[in-house]
Each structure stands twice: as C-alpha cells, then as structure tokens.
Computed example of a mutant assay.
Amino acid sequence: MYIVAKRFIANDAEAEDVVQEAFIKAFSKLEQYQAEVTFGAWLKRIVINTSIDTLKANKKRLIELDEAHLKIVDNEYDDKWLVDDTVTINDIKQTIDNLPEKYKYVVMLYLLEGYDHQEISNILNISEVASRTQLYRGKKIVQEQLTKKQHGTRY
C-alpha cells in the first residue's frame, strides 16, 4: 500500500502518513466492506482516495477538463502503443510522473493500477468521457517523450 501511495505522493514521510490514515479509515469503516472485491482491492482504493485527498488538501488540485470541449476518443485504435525495447519501466514511470496532473492521475490509475474508466471517474469525480480523453492525451504525451528520449533529443 505504501508503493501505491508513493505513486501519488512524492514525499516519503507524507506517503507513510497517507498509508497510516488509509488504514485508520479502513479499520473504522470495516463494517462497510461487503466482500464484492478482495480486501486488498478495497484497501488499495482507500489508499488511492486518501492520496488524492492529500494532494487536494495541499492545494495540488486536480484540473478537470471543461466538458464542453471534450471529444470522445475511440480507444479501439489507441490500444496499440508500443515502446522500444530499450525503454525501461523506470523510464515509463518517470515520464508518467512528469505529466501534467490532469493526465498523470488518469494514466497512473489506468495503466499502473488497472482501474477502468468507470472506476477512475468515480475516484477522481470526473466523467467517463473526461477519463478516456485524459488517458488518450496522457498516453500520447508519454509516447512522444519516450520517442524523443529514444532518439536522443531529450536529456
């Protein structure tokens, strides 16, 4: 759970506080656990929500896209995005970490945590359309940055 918190919170001590707070929340709301998902998945969601709440409290607000300017992205054609064999998982994580916040959290929740768009929309309080659009745009930026790095134009 600490690793999950660290994906959102850069400061080690603050990430530890988030995990501790999440465990306290989980313990105090244990009667609400319905076993619809595994206990680990339930706890992980609490850790993610607590991490996001902490970021919001630190004035690191999530930036929502204006719904009027969104377009629906067809993910059928977007699912094929490959990176060169020389790109490491650390390169990908670092690139995701450098994304603007409005893309970063959606990309992390989708690619690293495995949440679907409905779950992401509930966690971040955005529409599913916004989730899809932010994922599409975030993945596009990640691809561009990794391509630049591969061709030596970055760093």
Score class of each variant (00 low, 15 high):
Ala15Lys: 00
Asp84Cys: 08
Ile72Phe: 10
Gln20Phe: 11
Glu76Asn: 15
Val47Ala: 07
Ser28Lys: 14
Gly40Met: 07
Ile96Thr: 03
Ile120Ala: 00
Asp78His: 14
Lys59Thr: 09
Leu30Ile: 10
Ser51Val: 06
Gln32Val: 06
Phe39Lys: 01
Ile92Pro: 02
Ile52Pro: 01
Tyr155Asn: 15
Asn98Gly: 12
Tyr105Thr: 00
Thr50Leu: 03
Ile52Val: 14
Val83Arg: 06
Ile46Lys: 01
Ile3Asn: 15
Leu135Met: 04
Gln143Pro: 00
Val4Thr: 15
Ile24Glu: 15
Ile72Gly: 12
Lys25Cys: 07
Lys44His: 12
Phe27Glu: 15
Ile72Pro: 09
Asn11Met: 05
Tyr136Asn: 11
Arg45Lys: 13
Glu101Gly: 01
Asp74Glu: 15
Thr88Gln: 10
Glu64Met: 08
Ala41Leu: 10
Asp74Asn: 11
Ser131Asp: 07
Lys56Tyr: 09
Asn58Asp: 10
Leu112Tyr: 00
Ala22Gly: 06
Val87Asp: 02
Ile120Asn: 00
Arg154Pro: 01
Tyr33Cys: 08
Leu62Ser: 00
Lys44Val: 05
Ala35Phe: 10
Phe23Cys: 12
Tyr105Ser: 00
Tyr103Ala: 00
Asn90Glu: 14
Glu16Phe: 10
Lys93Met: 11
Leu111Lys: 10
Glu16Lys: 13
Ile126Cys: 05
Asn58Glu: 13
Lys44Asn: 13
Asp66Cys: 08
Ala35Pro: 03
Glu144Phe: 13
Ala5Arg: 02
Arg45Tyr: 02
Lys56His: 13
Ala130Gln: 14
His151Ala: 06
Thr38Val: 09
Leu146Ile: 10
Asp85Trp: 07
Thr95His: 00
Gly138Ala: 03
Lys6Leu: 10
Ser121Ile: 04
Gly40Ile: 05
Gln134Thr: 01
Leu65Phe: 07
Tyr136Asp: 13
Glu144His: 12
Asp53Tyr: 05
Ile24Lys: 11
Asp66Asn: 15
Leu82Ala: 11
Glu67Arg: 05
Val73Glu: 12
Thr153Ile: 15
Gln143Asp: 04
Lys29Gly: 14
Ile46Gln: 06
His117Asp: 13
Ala15Ile: 03
Val87Glu: 04
Gln118Pro: 02
Asn90Leu: 09
Leu124Ala: 01
Glu119Asn: 08
Asn98Arg: 11
Ala130Phe: 02
Val47Ser: 04
Asp79Phe: 14
Phe27Gln: 15
Lys148Trp: 09
Phe23Tyr: 12
Tyr2Phe: 13
Gly40Asn: 11
Asn75Trp: 06
Ala130His: 02
Tyr136Ile: 02
Val87Thr: 12
Lys139Cys: 14
